[in-house]
Design a protein around this nucleic acid. Structure first.
Lengths: 133, 133
DNA sequence: GGGTTACTTGAGAAGTGTTCTCGATCACGT
DNA sequence: ACGTGATCGAGAACACTTCTCAAGTAACCC
């Protein structure tokens, strides 16, 4: 049996309200800030569930934190992420998909999964950085 | 000033002796197994140094551990990694490099870095898995 | 070689992010 | 409304990594 609890809804809502990738801890803080007494463990559980169900994407930041995001599609895709403000653009990468599959096959590898993410500075943050430099 | 200590040599040697990516902890255990009384903190420090100097590549496993490997080239390249035995193949990916740069530029992103790694089962492990299934 | 200096080491403490434990709680089917 | 078992939450437990600091020692100078 699978229950619907306000906690799960709250996590999903907080995720939807966020444009970029957020860490579990950030999400927990955000929820607390709105007065929700949800527990940290529950946030982790809810995020893991969402990720498994395909309702959320997860990736590891370069710093090793797990970040989550509610993506607009369940289809396989990748991300272009601003390392300053977290702005995220979903990108398709048929070429990369093919390349990953080919290179795996050429080396006798099976069950190939791939990690492909691009981190950079978005236009706004680039401008800001230039102005302050 | 930068000193040469047997500890640093030991870490570099252990890394060279290993074909695939290894975790700092695994390297520490391996060194201890050979009788070396090197400390864990020192292994971490040595690995970080090697990574900075470009003598080792580092990446994060899907489980969140930091893995290190002595690569045959200092040039930018990517990896095809067996998630079972750790066997690693260095792969070039000019097409992916271009794609990453293009997609970043198209979205106004600058200072684009990318994470591109392919995890799979190597031929040997695929055969083993099939045999045991 | 002996002395000096300051980089390096190592054991353990501390820090960080995540998962687990377990009694209390509460959603859901009846 | 009731019973059941999934879910919650606080804190403990964990795993990995980094920090602290006294002791050790490589490199330089003479």
């Amino acid at each position: 049996m699978k229950r619907n609890t306000w906690q799960r809804e709250a996590v999903r809502g907080a995720l939807d309200a966020n444009d970029g990738f957020v860490s579990a801890q950030a999400l927990h803080s955000a929820l607390h800030a709105t007065g929700s007494p949800i527990g940290l463990a529950t946030v982790y559980r809810a995020l893991a569930d969402l990720a498994v169900k395909g309702d959320a994407d997860s990736l590891q930041s370069p710093e090793g934190e797990s970040l989550y995001r509610a993506c607009s599609t369940n289809l396989h895709h990748h991300h272009l992420i601003c390392r300053n403000c977290g702005l995220t653009v979903e990108i398709e990468a048929d070429a990369v998909e093919r390349w990953a599959k080919d290179v795996a096959a050429q080396n006798g590898f099976t069950q190939a999964a791939h990690v492909v993410d691009v981190f950079g500075l978005c236009a706004a943050c680039t401008a800001k950085a230039a102005a302050s430099a």
